[in-house]
């Protein structure tokens, strides 16, 4: 019985690790709050059950100082939670647009264009050594339901959809982004370990929503290039085999 984060419970991306840390931080705060309030509620009920019918209740319309305390303390905690998160969010969704410290534009390699459609993922990579163009090129490499990315460092994909709204979700990497019709959305993440990570759709896209089963294959940069060469050779196969002499 393993009812916790998928796999061994670890996130396989830097961002995912941070998300997990935040999750556990909130979990601790929330658990303490839950135990505290539930204990208070339980104690109040237990005491309330014990008061006899002729006994006078605590006739009180409230307490100003208590109200102040339980306004200020939670708001401090909540503000802390809110502000503490901002940086991770910025890193995930905004810092890719920012410039480096020396003023040069940030460079995140765009490895592929991921197109969601009812009900599969079609992926287009540029040929080895070329950048991804927004329009298809003759030497592009295509795969379906299998997204290959290199490990080590941030990579970016361009997410789009052919038809309705979908969402790109890789649970093990804690990455999720909607694919919105008419938009191309850059998503960047890193995979810390080579391996196969399941990839699925997280936004209702029709009756076959659950069918969009795919795999994100993280490989070392060398393996990635080798795979692209192999895929390219396969894709441009003309089927001609020299007859055996």
């Amino acid at each position: 019985m393993h009812w916790w984060f998928p796999g061994d419970g670890n996130a396989y991306s830097t961002l995912g690790g941070k998300i997990d840390d935040l999750f556990y931080l909130i979990l601790v705060i929330v658990s303490v709050t839950f135990v505290g309030t539930s204990a208070a509620l339980g104690y109040a009920l237990w005491r309330g059950a014990a008061i006899k019918a002729d006994e006078k209740v605590w006739f009180s319309h409230g307490s100003h100082s208590l109200e102040v305390i339980w306004t200020i303390v939670p708001s401090a905690v909540l503000l802390f939670i809110a502000l503490y998160q901002l940086d991770v969010w910025a890193e995930y969704r905004m810092k890719g647009f920012a410039k480096e410290k020396d003023g040069s534009p940030k460079i995140i390699t765009v490895v592929a264009e991921v197109t969601a459609r009812q009900f599969e993922w079609r992926i287009r990579y540029p040929a080895n050594g070329k950048p991804l163009k927004p329009t298809p090129q003759p030497d592009d490499i295509y795969s379906v339901n299998e997204l290959h990315v290199p490990t080590g460092g941030l990579v970016s994909i361009t997410l789009r959809t052919d038809d309705v709204q979908h969402a790109f979700f890789v649970p093990m990497l804690r990455v999720k982004q909607d694919a919105v019709p008419g938009k191309m959305i850059p998503v960047w993440f890193d995979a810390t370990m080579p391996g196969n990570y399941e990839m699925l759709c997280a936004e209702l896209c029709g009756w076959g929503h659950y069918k969009m089963k795919a795999m994100l294959v993280a490989q070392s940069a060398d393996d990635f290039e080798a795979w692209k060469d192999k895929a390219s050779a396969e894709q441009f196969d003309d089927g001609y085999r020299k007859p055996a002499e």
Partner: peptide
Amino acid sequence: MVSTIMIALPSAIKTFNWIGTIWGGR
């Protein structure tokens, strides 16, 4: 996010007040 997290505050105040209501009651 900030506004959403802050909306938890009035809910928390209400919860505390409910517990306060039960507290010491019969």
